[in-house]
């Protein structure tokens, strides 16, 4: 019976309603997805850009069967990394330019909820792009190995790490004078481990490596994800405070 106490009654009237961490995070994700669903400017830019990158790689590297064997993972991850920066930049710049960031910061929610909200929506955008680019790549180059679950798992883990650092750094770079130019310069050297480990693991899978063989890069990928999500979560407060 005790569990049924009315929380509203016990809430002191001087304290405004504070949504739970999870609710706040989801509200931000929802906002971003809804805005994107209406304008579609971010996703379409990322997609067209990805297509162009693959097109350029196709001719620059002459992606015939033999070359593809060794470079497919690299081409895909380069594409995702570039498209990812595009999305990260845009999604943070929108918050900053329209003054949404100030609104978010004034809202009575935990700052790290803002980080997770932005990170999850950024991740969603990146995964949507990947979900379109990967089948297209498979179709264009007849690369059916892409659809094995472990390959997709590696893509997911890599994207998570990349987006975790990327969201934190884009929150920093939009507040600087050089803005868009700065994000890749800040992000790429720090994201080297996640990109290389992902290329290593996914490339191995495409060439028929067993799960045990890609365990080492996979472990590092997980270690990176855990460390950087934790750090980004802890320091995000310092990045957005005024």
């Amino acid at each position: 019976m005790k569990t049924e106490t009315n929380t509203a009654e016990h809430r002191p009237s001087s304290i405004i309603y504070r949504p739970s961490f999870f609710k706040a995070t989801m509200a931000i994700v929802q906002k971003d997805l809804a805005a994107e669903l209406r304008s579609r400017e971010l996703l379409s830019a990322m997609l067209v850009f990805s297509m162009l990158v693959i097109l350029i790689f196709n001719f620059a590297l002459e992606l015939d069967v033999k070359v593809r064997q060794s470079v497919t993972a690299g081409v895909l991850w380069t594409t995702f990394a570039f498209a990812g920066t595009l999305g990260l930049n845009r999604s943070m710049a929108v918050e900053k330019d329209r003054g949404c960031m100030d609104g978010l910061l004034l809202a009575p929610v935990d700052r790290s909820a803002i980080f997770f909200g932005k990170a999850i929506s950024n991740l969603a955008f990146m995964l949507i792009v990947e979900a379109i680019v990967l089948p297209l790549y498979a179709l264009l180059y007849n690369e059916t190995r892409i659809f094995q679950p472990s390959f997709l798992g590696v893509i997911l883990l890599g994207s998570i790490g990349y987006i975790a650092v990327g969201t934190l750094l884009s929150a920093m770079s939009v507040q600087t004078r050089t803005r868009d130019v700065l994000l890749p310069i800040l992000l790429f050297p720090v994201a080297v481990p996640v990109l290389l480990a992902s290329v290593k693991a996914s490339g191995g899978l495409l060439n028929g490596a067993t799960f045990a063989e890609i365990l080492a890069p996979l472990n590092l990928l997980i270690v990176y994800d855990v460390i950087f999500i934790a750090v980004a979560f802890m320091v995000f407060d310092f990045v957005v405070e005024e």
Binding site: M172, P193, Y224
Partner: peptide
């Protein structure tokens, strides 16, 4: 400070990778 921290963390992982 944030970036110095990130750099210090990622460099060893880069080496391992």
């Amino acid at each position: 400070a944030v970036y110095a921290l990130l750099g210090g963390l990622s460099a060893p992982i880069t080496f391992m990778v």
